[in-house]
Design a protein around this nucleic acid. Sequence first.
DNA 1: ATGTTC
Length: 410
Amino acid sequence: MKPLPYEVMQEGGVPIKSWTLGVPFEEEARAQLRNISQMPFIHKWVAAMPDVHLGKGATIGSVVPTLGAVIPAAVGVDIGCGMMAVRTSLSAPQLPDNLAGVRSAIERAVPHGRTGGFRGKRRRDKGAWENPPDDALAGWAPLAAQFELLKEKHPVLKNTNNINHLGTLGTGNHFIEMCLDEQGSVWLMLHSGSRGVGNRIGTYFIEKAKRDMELWHIHLPDSDLAYFPEGTEHFDDYVQAVEWAQEFACINREVMMARTIGAVKQALGTDFEARMEAVNCHHNYVSREHHYGRDVLVTRKGAVRARVDEMGIIPGSMGAKSFIVRGLGNEESFCSCSHGAGRVMSRTKAKKQVSLEEHRAATADVECRKDEGVIDETPSAYKPIEKVMAAQKDLVEIVYTLKQVVCVKG
DNA sequence: ATGTTC
């Protein structure tokens, strides 16, 4: 008999199938998944991807199919976070030896980094538009009417960043890269989500669900598993808001990609074709899908959908390879794959343990930040991506293997 | 991840 390509755990609830053979899988993440598996509305089982690790609220790298309920913390606050990549007609020999100019052109074209401005001192906010450019305004057009309705219904959204965050990168593990594939084609790839407004929507509904649980005296193994039952007003409100935030995130990536393409053309003084092969996929989101005969809501937090022939992106850390993949439509994973390498070290631990020299060596061939502020993103803070890819051979096949030459971080 | 902060 062929050995199973995944590990199975079951304690009281539904099974947990984990595509984690040969990769680290911490006990804290297992415990978090066991809690999810106890919920009475999980369809069939919970799936864990090879980049699985402990997350705030819900496990990163989890796929949770639910019947008649949704858990807002299982989606998280970075609603619609995901990846976009395009292959260009440029090839490696057309690039200059020094890519500093390309990096700074991208940095000028796309706001990135921490929101500035402290009480008393008004500093310019590096992470948002002061005046959104025309392409951001155009991207906002299809979002505007629905946002007015959301604001009316949920006044908490009134003072959030919204249009001024459309086409902006953010911080942390959000990035923009120029990569080369194994044939020498140049790719542009980026990672970002729904920024301030999606965060506010996520936080607001997670709190709302927790209050509902208290109101109805429903006790949970973990308060972050608070849910909205289908048929309630809050369920409908959440689904509507989360879908809007997912759309915002998708358009955010498109606007940034167009601006990045423009910046690279300008920096190189060359025109080229882009979007020859474009992929834009969420990895923190909820979607209505059909699995094993039922209409379900599938929540993927740190997981990518991988239906038959569906294209996805699995990025490695800032010094590692990334992969453009094609889904194999493996139903047992609810047609899913990992969203990256997955952390092995918390941000705090990485900052304490990894030296600047080590970080510089690990990113020697990349035009990127080499300062203390990015140590929490250093390659050794992540699982080895090759092992992560090996553990999901039955979920996706690799179409392109990319290696970054430029990396912009917020 | 974001926003706010002493």
